[in-house]
Amino acid sequence: MGLYFSIILGMVLVNNYPLAQFLGICPFLGVSKKLDSSLGMGVAVIFVMVMATAATWPIMKLLSAWNIAYLQTIVFILVIAALVQFVEMVLKKFIPALHKALGVYLPLITTNCAVLGVCINNIDLGYNYPQSLVNSFGAGVGFLLAMLIFSGMRQKLENNNKVPKPFQGVPITMTTAALLSLAFMGFGGLV
């Protein structure tokens, strides 16, 4: 039990995916302009990450047993893409409300560093099945937390007209992310 708690804490605060490990930066910076879209994106990321780990970890065991572990990259990305497509169709048919809330982010998450990154990290860190699921859940929660905080900061930035001209737009956003990342560095050594 203690191990799971430390895994989650580590993924949420210490090894935060967008801020410390630079995985999933594109949606992190692209979708976090508004708070509700950040919330939707974060929940979608948690959903996809846990599902992708649930699917890819057993497949990796199979690949290792058959001595074709080098096909990891190809198989993982295909499984993730197919799975997300399939889940989007299932959601559309059976839970339309959820599809309306999350559906537009699902294609954005598919070819995204974060999901493939967490699947590969699970294998590299040598976690077993329950630990991998907890790891990816923690990674998703960390992503959500970072995005919520960041979108709050960005909304404050919107009304500011004192930003110098070259820094307007992307650079000031990145600088804000740098400050947030600096803040999260304070959690280093916690776990």
Binding site: P166, T175, A178, L179, M185
Partner: peptide, 26 residues
């Protein structure tokens, strides 16, 4: 980690300054 964000931001700001000088939009 924070340095990565900041250096990237600075380089993009420099490139944006060049783009603005040439009359484009970043």
């Amino acid at each position: 980690a924070p340095g990565g964000f900041f250096v990237y931001a600075s380089i993009i700001a420099f490139v944006n300054w060049l783009i603005n000088r040439k009359g484009g939009t970043p």
